[in-house]
Design a protein around this nucleic acid. Structure first.
Length: 491
DNA sequence: GCGGATCAC
DNA sequence: TATGGTGATCCGC
């Protein structure tokens, strides 16, 4: 009944349907069993269960009256959100298929027909579709993946190459529209509204003059009928130019995205999938539906959108991860429409901001514009290493730790310099050998950027942190860490 | 402002 | 043998 956690398969992604999850989860657990990671994950799992139980207890104390009252209040919020709904944009989410793995397969034919993944024995960054059939996926340690799929070929990644390919892809997108924003090397949103409106359509492409558009009927997208056009909220007429029929916008955006994906494939020998709708949330969800090498169009009218999100599984909603899913699932919320059904209860158990975002999602609303990051807010560097003592017998930092802190500070200073940044807040992060994560930060009155300044503060913070930790330990206790990190922000 | 948590990729 | 790195955001102090 509990949701996924670090010890079970996350099957939310594409290509993971129809797997023997029982077997996969058993192998994952058995392979992990006894490790420090496993113990930590189990501890977190228990803590989450306790929090869920606590929440359920809170729910038990709610009265019908309280729930009804909240429902009414939230109906006002729903109405306000609804009135601001914008169906006029053509937003597309383009997502490269199994990106890193696809690049490696392209450049090494020996990898083409075998299950393979990119990464190392400690961690995989992505897997190809053959490997996914075995339950092998991103963010899984390679040694566990090998147990699931003994024939798995693991190749190290080539980040510079992926970066170069990504530039090619972005350049192609840029030829279609200047309104695009890369979310990562393999993901980009674009706003094709203007592109669509400026394109002309030949009469034979119009269903009123010939065959209706088929889109990709595999995917359940539909050809709207004229009833839908007249429904309130239908936006087609608003954006169609006079003299052109309502189908124009849908047909055109579909075709533009097909062209885009075709050009990406021709140029890079790699395939992309895409989702087409009127906001970024819907577009993103849609881009997953016909992966790999497919696109899914969700018509921009209210009824269609509401029907679509109603049946959407909660775990497919971006921003809802394993923890939220655990809470919601315990409340009987498993699909998006349940968020509305249970809104009166949710209002009492979550923060107003969270409830608001749930309702927003449940209405199928999302950002109607694509915007690139307006500058970074923090910069950090961290490193995992084999378990290392942190403190000496007389409670100083060990030389190994001091050296690593120094190296991290230098790396960070170089990166700050490269971007001409300086920040007022310095943080250190330490992950103990037990996988417990601790962080300490300090904001100063002036921005720092040099290795020496960062190192000095980071060392003080780490010393202080170690002192704190030792206070609650028996004398002579040795702390052991597996990761150190430093960060600078508040530029 | 701080520290822990959560999430995405 | 073995479970990442980077950045963002939110919540409750």
């Amino acid at each position: 009944m509990t949701g996924p956690n670090s010890l079970t398969l996350n099957d939310g992604k594409a290509g993971m349907q129809g797997l023997d999850k029982e077997r996969i989860n058993r192998i994952i657990r058995e392979t992990s069993k006894g490790s420090k990671f496993f113990q930590h994950a189990e501890k977190k799992e228990k803590e989450l269960k306790n929090k869920v139980d606590k929440m359920l207890k809170e729910r038990g104390e709610l009265t019908e009256q309280m729930i009804k009252q909240s429902e009414l209040e939230l109906d006002g919020v729903l109405a306000r959100l609804e009135s601001a709904r914008d169906l006029t944009r053509d937003i597309v989410h383009v997502d490269m298929d199994a990106f890193y793995a696809a690049v490696e397969m392209r450049d090494n034919p020996a990898l083409k027909d075998v299950p393979m993944a990119v990464g190392g024995s400690a961690m995989l960054s992505t897997s190809n579709y053959l490997a996914r059939r075995f339950g092998v996926r991103a963010a899984m340690p390679g040694f566990i993946a090998k147990k699931l799929c003994p024939g798995l070929v693991i190749v190290p990644g080539h980040h510079e190459k992926y970066s170069a390919v990504s530039s090619q892809v972005m350049e192609i997108i840029g030829k279609f529209t200047s309104e695009f924003a890369a979310m990562s090397l393999d993901e980009v949103y674009c706003d094709l509204t203007d592109v669509v409106q400026n394109r002309t359509v030949s009469p034979e492409e119009c269903p009123e003059h010939g065959e209706p558009p088929l889109f990709n009927n595999l995917n359940g997208s539909h050809t709207p009928n004229n009833d839908e056009v007249s429904k309130p909220g239908a936006a087609r007429d608003e954006v169609s130019k006079p003299g052109l029929c309502w189908c124009r916008r849908e047909r055109v955006v579909w075709n533009v995205v097909e062209e885009m994906r075709r050009e990406i494939e021709t140029t890079t020998q790699l395939t992309a999938s895409a989702g087409l709708s009127c906001n970024t949330f819907l577009a993103k969800v849609c881009s997953d539906l016909n992966k790999p090498n497919g696109q899914y169009f969700l018509p921009s009218d209210r009824e269609t959108i509401m029907d679509f999100v109603a049946e959407l599984e909660i775990k497919k909603v971006p921003g809802i991860g394993r923890v939220q899913q655990a809470y919601l699932s315990a409340l009987g919320v498993n699909k998006v429409s349940d968020l509305i059904t249970h809104r009166g209860t949710l209002a009492h158990l979550f923060t107003p901001a969270t409830v608001h975002s749930y309702l927003y999602t449940a209405l199928g609303l999302g950002s109607n514009q694509v915007s690139s990051d307006e500058g970074r807010r923090s910069i950090s560097t961290e490193n995992t290493f084999s378990d290392t003592n942190v403190n000496t017998g007389n409670n100083k930092l060990t030389p190994e730790i001091v050296v690593m802190l120094s190296e991290l500070s230098e790396t960070l200073a170089n990166r700050l310099k490269a971007e001409n940044l300086a920040g007022e807040t310095v943080s250190v992060k330490m992950k103990l050998a037990t996988f417990e994560i601790l962080q300490r930060s300090r904001t100063q009155s002036h921005a720092v950027s040099t290795k020496e300044e960062i190192e000095f503060t980071a060392r003080e913070l780490l010393c202080q942190l170690v002192k704190e930790l030792l206070e609650i330990k028996p004398p002579g206790h040795r702390l052991s860490a597996r990761l150190l990190g430093v960060r600078v922000n508040k530029f």
